[in-house]
Design a protein around this nucleic acid. Structure first.
Lengths: 200, 200
DNA sequence: CCCACCGCCATACCGGTGGTATGTTCGTGC
DNA sequence: GCACGAACATACCACCGGTATGGCGGTGGG
């Protein structure tokens, strides 16, 4: 039986996560103090340290929050009923779009590797967006749509390219134009790899 | 006339930069205190704040240090007398190799965008490695070696891919194998783009 | 040759921040 | 309705980035 206290507890925890996502997005990890986080969530540090072991843990909760959001949308597309190639293209568009979200951009892509440490970040990414991209690439290969390539390193290359490109889009004054240019270049590259597979 | 005092001053400044490069590489920006930096350089905070405006400025000096090193090596290759295509390939190898340097890896690629802010980092990168890569790509296009593509976004894609791939290499237990795999994938991609240009 | 000057650096101190230890309240189960 | 403990609040500490002030010694003018 879920008690009333459980509701309260989860509510304050959620408030802390929401608050930290907001502040980490705006001012970054180093630029936001725990006092600001707790103030915005209308609690004190006591509450924060009851739910989390420290500042890093708060950040990781914020990280999980934004990653889960993106993963949910991506998963829906990549497990759809369309043919693999169309699924991959749709997933590509969706991921680029997700990267434009300032929260995902800054927390998950920019600061997480520094705050959490690269190894831990990589481990986490395997369960989120990167894992899905890697799986999508594997599906394309299994379906014979593209040449067989080392999946691990290739998806790493693709992921890195997309992330930095998306950052470029997010900071450009004309997001639409830059976004279309990037999508165009990536699709052209993919199409070449695809036709190469068709030739074989 | 260069005075004796100028020598002393430059020496302590250099000691501070060397010390900070070392510590930032090992423990990261947030993980190293100014006291540690000054202690290793055998000076006090007074000296540090005489030469730099603050911790950020120290970091940027360390950033310039490692970037200049890489830029020097890259420039020598890219301005060589070989044909454009060979120059580009050699530059590619050289850049991947540079990314394996822990100092360049962590300071210039991982932490700089967070510490300096993305906009400032991007601006600086235009004068360093990224600028050279962009120029190399432009040279290839001018020489008709590859298809005409939007240079800015394409080099951004390439740069992002190489950086994340290099990080992967650096952290893998078998650097040689992973490195060769990545180089292989990139070269195959480039070759396709090249042959495409030859067809046209 | 000497002295006043100032660059170069050391010392002392402050505000803020992450983290901890202890106190307090209130829902819950007996 | 009462004791118990989870869920917080409060008070405090250590450390770090930054600043203000003091002093030493190389340097250049006379």
């Amino acid at each position: 039986m879920r008690s009333r206290r459980d509701d309260y507890s989860e509510s304050t925890r959620a408030a802390l996560v929401t608050s930290s996502v907001r502040l980490f997005t705006e001012r970054g990890y180093a630029g936001t103090s725990l006092d600001e986080i707790t103030k915005r969530a209308r609690v004190t540090k006591g509450a924060l340290y009851h739910h989390f072991s420290g500042k890093q843990a708060v950040f990781e909760a914020a990280f999980d929050e934004v990653e889960a959001e993106v993963k949910g949308r991506l998963e829906k597309i990549l497990t759809g009923s369309q043919p693999p190639w169309e699924r991959a293209l749709a997933g590509l568009r969706e991921f680029i779009g997700s990267c434009l979200d300032p929260a995902y951009q800054r927390i998950a892509l920019q600061e997480a590797p520094v705050v959490m440490g690269w190894a831990r970040w990589r481990e986490a990414e395997d369960r989120y967006s990167f894992g899905l991209i890697k799986q999508a690439l594997q599906d394309l290969i299994d379906a014979g749509e593209v040449l067989a390539v080392p999946v691990e390193v290739t998806s790493r290359l693709l992921f890195g390219a997309l992330c930095s490109a998306a950052t470029e889009i997010a900071h450009s004054t004309d997001q639409r134009t830059v976004g279309e240019e990037i999508e165009d270049v990536v699709v052209r590259l993919l199409n070449q790899v695809r036709s190469q597979a068709a030739d074989a």
